[in-house]
């Protein structure tokens, strides 16, 4: 067996999912990225089999309706072939703008948290909301297998509250986001509602992925 390192070079792409791309499901996104890779004409490494396709792995699916300025996917380059990163950038639509292409340092499995910016429509002040996160905030957390009452604070690495524009309250939250533990930003609103602080999510934007020590995945 030849050494995989000589067969391809791992590359990482940081990209946005904004504007109308928030309506794309993860499957749609996957298809769009594979086609963009093919269209770009760059020397990508393919998976074999009956339907060979570019190797491509996403850091983490993003819920329908959320936007992001820090999505990641990895692909593989054939070694020793010249290529232009611009060709790859140009193959993406504006709503999936490529921000950066680089050689990755950290594998995706090290992702422990994701940082989000959440805009809340609420009559409450930012201070009241901030204070609420110092008390237990229980929600009924649903997974495919079970439903469980949890205190969402156990899933929060860091949270900041600010008064935003148009009377919105802005949350900057680092939430557990890994294979073992994760929390959707939707539960932040649910937790607040459960203690009588009525609010509705206006917008969610994922900003970046973090490792267990809080540093950014690179």
């Amino acid at each position: 067996m030849s050494d995989p390192k000589t067969m391809f070079k791992e590359m990482r792409v940081r990209f946005c999912k904004t504007d109308d791309a928030i309506y794309f499901s993860h499957l749609d996104l996957n298809r769009a990225v594979l086609r963009a890779l093919r269209r770009s004409g760059i020397p990508y490494w393919s998976k074999g089999g009956f339907s060979p396709h570019p190797y491509c792995v996403f850091a983490m699916p993003l819920s329908l309706g959320f936007e992001s300025t820090g999505e990641l996917f990895d692909f593989r380059l054939l070694p020793g072939v010249e290529w232009e990163p611009e060709d790859l950038k140009n193959a993406f639509p504006d709503s999936l703008k490529v921000l950066e292409i680089y050689e990755p340092c950290d594998p995706f499995k090290e992702i422990a948290f994701a940082a989000y910016e959440v805009e809340l429509e609420t009559a409450e002040s930012a201070e009241t909301i901030a204070a609420a996160f110092k008390q237990p905030l229980t929600v009924l957390k649903k997974t495919k297998r079970s439903e469980q009452e949890v205190d969402i604070r156990e899933f929060i690495n860091k949270i900041e509250t600010k008064t935003g524009e148009d009377g919105l309250v802005c949350l900057f939250a680092e939430l557990a986001s890994g294979n073992q533990r994760s929390l959707s930003p939707n539960y932040l609103a649910e937790g607040l509602c459960n203690v009588g602080l009525f609010c509705k999510i206006r917008k969610v934007r994922r900003l970046k992925f973090l490792k267990a020590d809080g540093s950014e995945i690179l």
Partner: peptide, 9 residues
Amino acid sequence: PARYVGGEM
């Protein structure tokens, strides 16, 4: 919803 927004390449 992606089928109601257009904007395709």
